[in-house]
Design a binder for these strands. Structure first.
Lengths: 193, 193
DNA sequence: TATATTCTAAAATACAGATTCTAATAATAC
DNA sequence: GTATTATTAGAATCTGTATTTTAGAATATA
């Protein structure tokens, strides 16, 4: 069946993710990715149709991991206190997989997707919509009759931990001691009038 | 003394800021800026030594405005409740000057500064340090003997409003109804143990 | 062993966008 | 008016980087 590949598709994505996390998107050139992966530039195009498609893939991979964990936490929550716990998925991911954390919480989604093939953009849109829907469902479930609950839930579960984690991320990992403050802030935002 | 200039240096910065806010840094090309400002590309280099220097300038202009307002609020604060008010400088700026808001709260500082001349980078570093120092001073003043106060103050006054505002910014402006939730979250973060 | 296939390897090409250059133009000073 | 100078205007370069191409190497199957 032909010669063995030196690196797998997953290896390539991981290499690209490392470069993007370390150096930013503008410096994530095909040459830099190739160097990180230890293959010549040409080989990359046997795995991936274009740089834009590869960037989209690494964003999708990170976002999928995050979305799955986040929604799992949220869908089981039956009180505001349990809902607030979902805010900790963000610092948790940032610690467990810093490269994914940087991709999701330091860089801009659109910088990964603007030039991506339509199918990748559609997948990303579905992913974002699923998050939105999960939050909206939780808001309806736990704060019915509250018109602005959806907005407050989004602030508590996305905005606050996002802003908290971002201060640390490119250089360091968010310290564990941060979590109680995130939790307190998320609870307050959930309860705010 | 020679022919009148069609646009001033400030006009040029404003045009670049609008393009950057609307389209992102990667699309903020010299051609796009020139078109926005209504001048040919060559004219830009009579105002500014390079694209990188211009990008740095628009970041510095926005950051300076923000830093001044933020530190003014913070330095006068004599209670935790008054400190928390400084968190609202972020949504306020985002509403008053959305282009500056997008530059500061949507894009990454480093994307404006990475290739900038050393002097611009130094100015940016001083600006960031001044913010940091102001927050540290407030933490010392209002929560002495608390070892992690500085971190919590930063979360409350920068991280939380940053994350809150960012959800809305590129397309819309953060709604006024958001402010009470930001304030509540900031107070909670300040008080967290 | 022959052949098709899948990859490596690196050079060649294409292209976008920053920067520089050359003329032309409009204002001021004398 | 004439010389001088700041500026416009846009074409001409230059550069960096994505992509394509060509040749060669390794492996599976028949």
């Amino acid at each position: 069946m032909g010669r063995f590949a030196r690196i797998s598709h997953a290896d390539l994505r991981a290499a690209a993710a490392r470069v993007a996390a370390r150096q930013g998107l503008a410096r994530t050139t095909i040459a830099a990715i190739a160097k990180e992966a230890g293959v010549p530039t040409g080989s990359i195009y046997h795995r991936v149709p274009s740089r834009a498609a590869l960037l989209a893939e690494i964003w999708l991979e990170a976002a999928d991991r995050y979305g799955t964990a986040f929604l799992a936490r949220l869908s089981g929550a039956s009180s505001l206190d349990e809902v607030a716990q979902a805010a900790l998925v963000t610092p948790f991911l940032a610690r467990e997989d810093p490269a994914a954390g940087v991709i999701l919480f330091v860089h801009r989604r659109d910088d990964f997707l603007d030039d991506a093939p339509a199918e990748s953009r559609a997948r990303a849109a579905r992913l974002v919509a699923a998050l939105r829907d999960g939050i909206a469902a939780a808001a309806r479930r736990l704060a019915p009759a509250d018109k602005r609950a959806r907005e407050r839930f989004a602030l508590a579960l996305i905005g606050i931990p996002y802003g908290a984690v971002r201060t640390f991320l490119p250089q360091a990992v968010p310290p564990l001691e941060l979590d109680p403050a995130i939790l307190a802030a998320a609870r307050a935002a959930l309860a705010a009038r």
